[in-house]
């Protein structure tokens, strides 16, 4: 009986954010549909899409999980007060987020050169696309994630239920949008 009640409570609390995440995902899907056309011009771009989206989840999911545990334990306050813990967590996310983005470009290029039957776009192009998209996404993700988690926590929502969906929704919407922007920008320069 209590299992059913607990399960129902978790379901009810998580469903709205997951449905919002679904809307974000569908929006990102529409953007991806556009991007499929650019793939012929930049071979390797489609390879980077899941890795890039997954990395948003990794870096900012870890930040969100850390913030959620910190809030639960009372180690940090739910506001943009420049406390050493918050600053360190945010700085680590910037380093991870931008660093990994650049390396995704490198790894993709190396893999496609090494595997038979693929010929990627140039290394500089792939890395440039990832760097621009990764940097822009980092800023929006960190500010957006912290704002939403802090606000949710103050209104009495368990941050554990908020982090995952917020990260993937923001990551999808802004990750894909900035990726397309980045492809466009790099196309202008190259």
């Amino acid at each position: 009986m209590s299992v059913r009640r607990d399960a129902w409570a978790i379901y009810r609390e998580s469903l709205p954010v997951l449905l919002i995440a679904l809307c974000g995902g569908l929006f990102a899907g529409l953007v991806l549909e556009e991007l499929v056309e650019a793939v012929e011009e930049y071979p390797g771009l489609l390879v980077m899409v899941p890795v890039f989206l997954a990395t948003r989840g990794n870096v900012y999911g870890a930040l969100g999980g850390r913030i959620a545990s910190g809030l639960h334990q009372g180690l940090i306050e739910p506001q943009f007060h420049p406390s050493p813990r918050l600053l360190n967590a945010v700085l680590a996310s910037f380093v991870n987020g931008i660093g990994v983005s650049v390396l995704i470009g490198v790894i993709t290029w190396v893999a496609l050169v090494a595997l038979p039957g693929w010929s990627p776009a140039s290394l500089v192009v792939l890395v440039a696309i990832m760097f621009v998209a990764g940097t822009l996404t980092s800023v929006v993700m960190i500010v957006g994630l912290l704002s939403l988690v802090f606000a949710g926590f103050r209104y009495g929502y368990d941050p554990d239920n908020l982090v995952g969906p917020i990260v993937t929704t923001l990551g999808d919407v802004f990750g894909m949008t900035f990726l397309v922007f980045s492809v466009w920008l790099v196309g202008l320069v190259v």
Binding site: L22, G24, L32, P50, L53
Partner: peptide, 8 residues
Amino acid sequence: VMVPTMVD
């Protein structure tokens, strides 16, 4: 269109 949601 389904890909990002499927992944996430």
